[in-house]
Design a protein around this nucleic acid. Sequence first.
DNA 1: GCGCTTTCTGCACACGTGTTCACATAGGGG
DNA 2: CCCCTATGTGAACACGTGTGCAGAAAGCGC
Lengths: 342, 342
Amino acid sequence: MTDENNIPAKPRRRVTAKAVAERAGVSRSAVSRAFTKGAYLDQEKKARILEVAEELGYRPNVFAASLQAESTNIVAVLTGNMKSHFDTELVEELLGRLTAEGKWPIVVNGEKVANASSIEGLFGFPVDAMILRGGSMDKYVVESCAKLHIPLIVSGVTVKSERVDSVACRNADGTYALTQLLLEKGRRRFAWIDGPTRVVTQEAHRRERRQGVERALAERGLEIIATRDSDYTYEGGLAAAEAILREQDVDALLCANDAMAAGALSYVRENLGLKVPEDLAVTGFDDIDMASWPCFNLTTVQNPKSEIVDHIIRLLHERLANPAKAGEVVLVGADLVPRGTH
Amino acid sequence: MTDENNIPAKPRRRVTAKAVAERAGVSRSAVSRAFTKGAYLDQEKKARILEVAEELGYRPNVFAASLQAESTNIVAVLTGNMKSHFDTELVEELLGRLTAEGKWPIVVNGEKVANASSIEGLFGFPVDAMILRGGSMDKYVVESCAKLHIPLIVSGVTVKSERVDSVACRNADGTYALTQLLLEKGRRRFAWIDGPTRVVTQEAHRRERRQGVERALAERGLEIIATRDSDYTYEGGLAAAEAILREQDVDALLCANDAMAAGALSYVRENLGLKVPEDLAVTGFDDIDMASWPCFNLTTVQNPKSEIVDHIIRLLHERLANPAKAGEVVLVGADLVPRGTH
DNA sequence: GCGCTTTCTGCACACGTGTTCACATAGGGG
DNA sequence: CCCCTATGTGAACACGTGTGCAGAAAGCGC
């Protein structure tokens, strides 16, 4: 009961410029000017205002300020499948870059949003742009962004839409080169562990990687002799490898991404006791950090995440500078990374 | 030149309730009421408004609305060292839970913010709360939050401050039990791979894990015979293992987290050709997903991330319901996870 | 007809800013 | 003394929303 000004019923609100003004004995305009660079304000007065602001714990509320500004510097980011590790690494780098650019990311896991309504609330925010990395409801997001005139940048999948920018890697080229490498090494009996069919909008992405393999095989009159759909995770890759190798004798086990390849590799080595690459080749896609670890040393294809992030940032700037420009589709290379599993 | 209303110079602003009102021939209040549940509004009129809103692409601007609301539902999240994998997994789970709770997270990598000023801008946002997971400038954040009356929840480190809540695991208990297990198995020559000293504010966290080991050893009249500071990453653990094993003959290599243990394990197996656990025990801490993979099968201590996230969410609710309540320090268990490397 | 309740509507305010505008003060040159 | 410029200041507005308030219209019982 020492502090009688304390009114517990009313939740503590943010300190406002008005409060600072009253305490410092100046007008509210003066307080605003104290935080605005280049505004006319008496030095002495400014010092006093900043002192009082520090004392009360005042910062200008950017939400209020953004009502008049033409940019909020807020960007929505929809993440993809974090268990693939590639998405995790890419998103982490993206978030760092956005922060460095003065943008504040609101992050939502696009895979886990149960229904459309849960993500609906996101469109109430006056974001500068939306960055979509995979996700389970891409189509809904693309349409909503178009309707609401929200700049949209998609990565991982190419989108041919009016004003949507997208960045993706040449998946088919990557797996084509990889398959050629394996063919040169004498591999002939190929199995393919694929991603999930569940995410309809990523069907193109899935198809591309598989088609690169098929095309290279077809040139030699071969085809994939066994395939399994999995889920881009280590556990999924391990289970798929087991399922395939129980029924088929293969000498090359190609996986749609590195995480599954790591799982497959574990199964082949630990459970079957086979030697890689002597008995069997195992390859991945993405070149995540883990792929270069000595315990995996995985032959794979590089999905150039830094380059992708560079493009995303560039497209973001260009789109904000010119919202009406045509959508751009950027394809980045998918270079072979030959290591020790082929 | 078909659309003469198009003024390219002026950047496209968000569609506003006023625009919808004019188009639908109603008052602006009616538009607001059309989006407010339980407000009196003629059914037919409401339908027309929603139709026009859909046509123009209108959503109420939550920033404007939040000026009057007492909660913005925005939460700032400062992440820790993503290379440790544990932080990645924890943050991912946390983000999912926050979204499910109707909170929108603004995510900033606390390790990478170069200087205080880069994170300073974050305090301009009227966030409901701030959630701190490690980071390189904890002290600055804690003080700033106190000054600005922003609820703060810290995890990974315990903070004894006026109104700060924190959740951490019983680090010392975990490594103590782990060390006892190894002693029972006959291990006597212990080495310790530690985290980085760089992050001053996490010094307590570091010390706890090491002290658990030291205490268990001391009870048998033993002590750590070799130690190296590393950086919580796979690569760091590998390098530290190399440095230690080049100079010392040890039979137990304890690591301050799982990622470093995985690196150490790789070095011991691949480079030295030693057998684990026959020749040498290697253990970690956290029990990240990777630890249970057959290729590592790591003996470790569980840092219960789901439980931690549960507590963070609970503390968030309680803090928002009662901003003035005393700070709470929650300690969660660190159970032994004996697998195949001890 | 009257009185009461229910449903509907627009005006006006509040939220917290940045900035324009008109005006005041001061200083210096003539 | 006047004129001009530079500097400082507060009132007022705009930003986009939700809602209290007062009043209107409609339905209903008597």
